[in-house]
Design a protein around this nucleic acid. Sequence first.
DNA 1: GTCTATATCGGGATAGAC
DNA 2: GTCTATCCCGATATAGAC
Lengths: 224, 224
Amino acid sequence: MAAKSEETRKKILEAALQLFRERGFAESTMRDIAQEAKVATGLAYYYFPKKEDLVMAFYVKVNAEIRPKVEAALASHGKLEQKIRALVYVKFDYFGPDRKFLGALSGYSADPGHRLSPFSKETKEIREEGIAQFRTALERSELKVPEDLVEAMPKILWMYQMGMVLFWIYDRSEGQRRTQLLLDKSLGIVVLLLKASSLPLMRPVRKLILDLVDVIAGEQSAVY
Amino acid sequence: MAAKSEETRKKILEAALQLFRERGFAESTMRDIAQEAKVATGLAYYYFPKKEDLVMAFYVKVNAEIRPKVEAALASHGKLEQKIRALVYVKFDYFGPDRKFLGALSGYSADPGHRLSPFSKETKEIREEGIAQFRTALERSELKVPEDLVEAMPKILWMYQMGMVLFWIYDRSEGQRRTQLLLDKSLGIVVLLLKASSLPLMRPVRKLILDLVDVIAGEQSAVY
DNA sequence: GTCTATATCGGGATAGAC
DNA sequence: GTCTATCCCGATATAGAC
């Protein structure tokens, strides 16, 4: 029975997240975290050998908590555009209080070699789940995705989402209006392009795009 | 006559850059740097109050050193595509030995609020110069840029370059072949799109794109 | 103004007692 | 599993020599 242990672990993680939210990642020391959780510093290290491990735990927690919200978003009626928008807004809503914290993390985002990067090996499972959300959105949409794009299109949409989230993180306009604007103006184009890409006429263009996706998310990459 | 002082400053900066190259940014301590430059730690701080200041000095140095190479690239005959490629390759060639170092810096790249970000206020001058390179490339090209795109197009190309450089930084394939592939495959599309955008037919699309650029590089943003 | 030597503060991480 | 005490090291400040 690991109930007690689970309890302590949770207590520490929660204290960490609270501090991360309040002050940001770098500004929260392991000492502070332990103190906030009312345990000894060493104990925090017992459960989370590195400060980064707290972040990984955060990722996993987020993923679990967000799942039902995503499912609700996907279950909604509405066209593909609405579904994509809903998926993105689930993240904005959920991460609302964590913008500052995410800002600190996004430093790692560019480096696929870093454990905490959304493109790393270590976050692969979470990433796959994120991509799957868009796969589902496409499947439940009015769009007939041509066979050769079935694999790539969810990845492209996931990347699009990541871009939006990154922009949102650093969007200092009140209520992140600029991000909303960007989403409004770009989403239409994106969906239009997806639709256009399905025309038989577009086959050569599709080939080009697929090549690009292959290079970016290619075998040798840390991304896949 | 500040010759002596200049000398010392240069010595420290050079030592720093050497260590940054060899071990990376975080791994080089001010102690190490001072030692490498054969001066006391305090002196390094006298010239560069924060470690970041060494990086800003690096940016400025790079900018000066790269200028003649850029001019050579722009003077070359060849079509727009060749000119863009040449501009990007100037950076790859120059930064070749600094890939690891740049990797550490690119952590800041996403945050426009950070001094060292290529999108920050503090790096504005350098950024403007980078954008101007593409403006010149366009002016000297066969492409007739429609009036309403004159401002945005160099910015778009600069962003494209930044993307390539970022990809290159983390490209672990030997000789960064994957980046070359990506450049080969994407550059053609980019130029094609630029050309297509000039057709009068495309006016509504242009409007959309300009709106997007406005939002991304908008007034409220840290970027402009 | 230029430089050295030394001190301080704080944070991640660990060893070992209970 | 949990705690206390401590280590190690980095950034940075400062006192004061030249």
